[in-house]
Write a protein that binds this DNA or RNA. Structure first.
Length: 286
DNA sequence: ATGGGCACCTGGCTGC
DNA sequence: TGCAGCCAGGTGCCCA
C-alpha cells in the first residue's frame, strides 16, 4: 500500500531494464495507480525510439487506469478506451511523484492522475517507446509476433527443441530472439547459458533435449530469482536512502570477463556474438 | 526462411 | 585538466 506521506517513488536500475525489472516496475506502478483517473498527459518530446503515437497526446481526460500488464518487456497500461504500450529501452524508467516537481533533462512525458499523482517517464538514451492503441494490444505490430512468456508453462524444453530444429544460429542469439521467447536480454541469456553449461556460440539445432531442459530451467530460475530480489528491494523504495543494485550482486559471469569462474576457477572469456558482449566459462560451458 | 548487421541515442569511459 | 572519440545495449528492420 502506498501511503500519502511518500513524496517520491523512484525506480532506478543499475543495469539495463530486463524482464525482472519490468515486472518489478509493473507491480509497483499497478499498486499505486490502478483505479486512478487520468487527467492529462504532458509530453516534452515527440520522438523516442519511434514517434510517440499522436493520439496518445490528444486523448480526452477522464479515463480510469484499469490494469497494468506485461508482455515480454512491454508494459501495457489498460484504459477503457485503449492501451498505452510502453517499452523502457536501455535506460528508461517510470517514477511516481506525489507532488509536482519541475521536469529535468530527459523527463519526456508526464501522465497526470487524480489525487496529485504523476507518472513521469525518464529516458536519457531514448531507446524506449510509447505507443497508444485502441485495438487489442496483443495484435499490435510490436507484440503480435512475440514468442511465449519465459515463465509460462508453454515455454519448455520440447518447445525450444522444436523451434531450434535445423537452426545454425548461435544458441545465445536464438534465445534472445523475441519471436522464440519473450524478453530474454543479453544479461539473462549470458547468465542462463552459464547456468545450463552451454557454450554461447553452439548452434541452436545441435543441442540435446536434456540440455534444453537445463537451459529452460536456468532461464526461469534466473528470472524468478531476480524478480524476487526486485520485490525485496521494492520495500526499500520507501526509504530515501534505500535502493541500489540488487541482482548485480548475484551475477555469475556477466560483466566479469577476465575474472575467475566461481565454479571451476577458470578465467572467464569475453567475446562478441554479433555486436553483443558475451561472457562464458571455457571450463563449465561446452 | 534464415542469419547477419545496422540504426536509433547519449552517458560514461578511455586515451591523448 | 580538458577534449575528442569510442562503446554499450534492446529490438525492429533491411539486405544478402
Amino acid at each position: 500500500m502506498i501511503m500519502c506521506s511518500i513524496a517520491l517513488l523512484v525506480i532506478v536500475f543499475a543495469l539495463v531494464p530486463e524482464l525482472p525489472e519490468v515486472e518489478t516496475t509493473r507491480t509497483a506502478l499497478a499498486s499505486a495507480l490502478c483505479g486512478k483517473t487520468l487527467h492529462r498527459i504532458e509530453a516534452r518530446t515527440r520522438q523516442l525510439r519511434w514517434p510517440i503515437t499522436p493520439q496518445l497526446l490528444k486523448r480526452a481526460p477522464g479515463d480510469t487506469l484499469l490494469a497494468i500488464k506485461r508482455r515480454g518487456k512491454y508494459l501495457l497500461f489498460q484504459f477503457p478506451q485503449g492501451t498505452l504500450i510502453a517499452h523502457l529501452g536501455m535506460s528508461g524508467h517510470f517514477r511516481i511523484l506525489t507532488k509536482f516537481l519541475p521536469p529535468g533533462a530527459h523527463d519526456h512525458l508526464d501522465l497526470i492522475f487524480a489525487d496529485d499523482l504523476l507518472l513521469r517517464y525518464h529516458d536519457p538514451r531514448r531507446f524506449g517507446s510509447l505507443h497508444w492503441t485502441e485495438s487489442d494490444p496483443l495484435h499490435h505490430k510490436l507484440l503480435r509476433s512475440i514468442g511465449p512468456e519465459p515463465l509460462g508453462d508453454d515455454f519448455n524444453a520440447a518447445y525450444l527443441m522444436a523451434r531450434a530444429a535445423n537452426r545454425r544460429l548461435a544458441i545465445k542469439n536464438f534465445i534472445m530472439d523475441s519471436k522464440v521467447v519473450a524478453g530474454v536480454g543479453n544479461i539473462y541469456a549470458v547468465e542462463s547459458l552459464f547456468g545450463a553449461g552451454i557454450h554461447p556460440t553452439r548452434p541452436a539445432g545441435r543441442i540435446s533435449l536434456a540440455r534444453y531442459e537445463r537451459l529452460t530451467f536456468a532461464i526461469k530460475d534466473t528470472l524468478e530469482r531476480a524478480i524476487r530480489a526486485g520485490g525485496t528491494t521494492l520495500k526499500d523504495y520507501f526509504n530515501p536512502k534505500g535502493g541500489g543494485g540488487y541482482f548485480s550482486q548475484s551475477l555469475a559471469v556477466y560483466g566479469r570477463g577476465g575474472e575467475t569462474c566461481k565454479v571451476c576457477s577458470a578465467k572467464l572469456k569475453q567475446i562478441l556474438i554479433g555486436t553483443r558482449a558475451t561472457v562464458y566459462c571455457p571450463g563449465c560451458q561446452t
